[in-house]
Amino acid sequence: MGVANRLDLTLRLVQGQPPGERVSVAELAQRLGVSEMTVRRDLDVLERQGLVRRVHGGAVAARAREEGGGFEARKGWQTATKDRLGAAVAGLVEPGSRVLLDAGTTTVHVAEQLAAQAPLTVAVLSLQAAVRLADRPGIELLVVGGRSRPGERSFVGPLALRTLDSLAFDVFVMSIGGVHAVHGWSEFSLDDAAVKQAGLAQAARTIAVADATKLGVRAFSQVAPLDAAHAFVTDAAAADPVTHPGGPPTLDALREAGVEIHLAP
């Protein structure tokens, strides 16, 4: 697993803990498949960026995350991979579709590519995606609204859920924090998980997307079983058992659940 991939997943695992609770170095090493020394070095990097706070034997999420650090720190990681994922997802969307676009750093790259599939009606669940799609020819942009989650600028809460309940979509592009052979799709935030569940219920087809580091990961809050999605887009590294031991068995479980697999080169 590359350094950027590992930092991304480490940050999400720390931030996925309940407020004030730590995740131990030993647990992170086990989840990531690396040494405890490597985990300590990575936590030092994240602490210098103000994203985590080191405590005895582990780390907790830093308050800087509530001031925009989470998304801003991650958006530059794995940019080339996310560009490829964005293009692969956009290629699965038919012109004329009504699309619900999830929040997340990867779906920002999807937003950049969707203009090529115009005309589209696109409802967005993040401020970042709204900026990318505003005033693009052939794109009718809907901003779902709700509470902007600090640090992520994703729309969550009762207002977002009520809005989604009143709409119907052809496609839901779902970004996901973890995909596990047994525990299915999961997220690091209860708020984000609730919005994703609403999106799944309101869409005729769901395309899930995540980079290879999310395979084999069980995040804090379960979103749905594997067969809730119709297609899954990830990068080709997910099929490499050396760099991503959790990848191949998770891909096998997805195929057994009837999910189409698309590996972006």
Score class of each variant (00 low, 15 high):
53 R>V: 11
53 R>K: 13
56 H>A: 13
58 G>V: 04
61 A>S: 11
61 A>K: 04
62 A>I: 08
63 R>W: 10
65 R>V: 15
66 E>K: 12
71 F>M: 09
73 A>I: 10
75 K>V: 15
76 G>T: 15
77 W>C: 02
78 Q>D: 12
82 K>W: 05
83 D>P: 01
83 D>V: 13
84 R>D: 06
87 A>W: 00
90 A>E: 00
91 G>C: 03
92 L>F: 03
99 V>D: 00
101 L>Q: 02
103 A>V: 07
103 A>E: 04
106 T>E: 08
106 T>K: 02
107 T>A: 00
110 V>S: 01
113 Q>S: 14
119 P>D: 06
120 L>N: 04
120 L>T: 05
121 T>A: 09
121 T>E: 14
122 V>K: 01
123 A>H: 10
123 A>N: 04
123 A>F: 07
126 S>K: 02
126 S>D: 06
130 A>P: 02
131 V>E: 06
132 R>C: 01
133 L>T: 00
136 R>C: 01
136 R>Y: 01
144 V>C: 08
145 G>T: 09
152 E>I: 15
152 E>K: 13
152 E>H: 12
156 V>D: 07
158 P>S: 12
159 L>A: 13
159 L>W: 12
167 L>F: 14
167 L>D: 10
168 A>E: 14
169 F>N: 13
174 M>C: 14
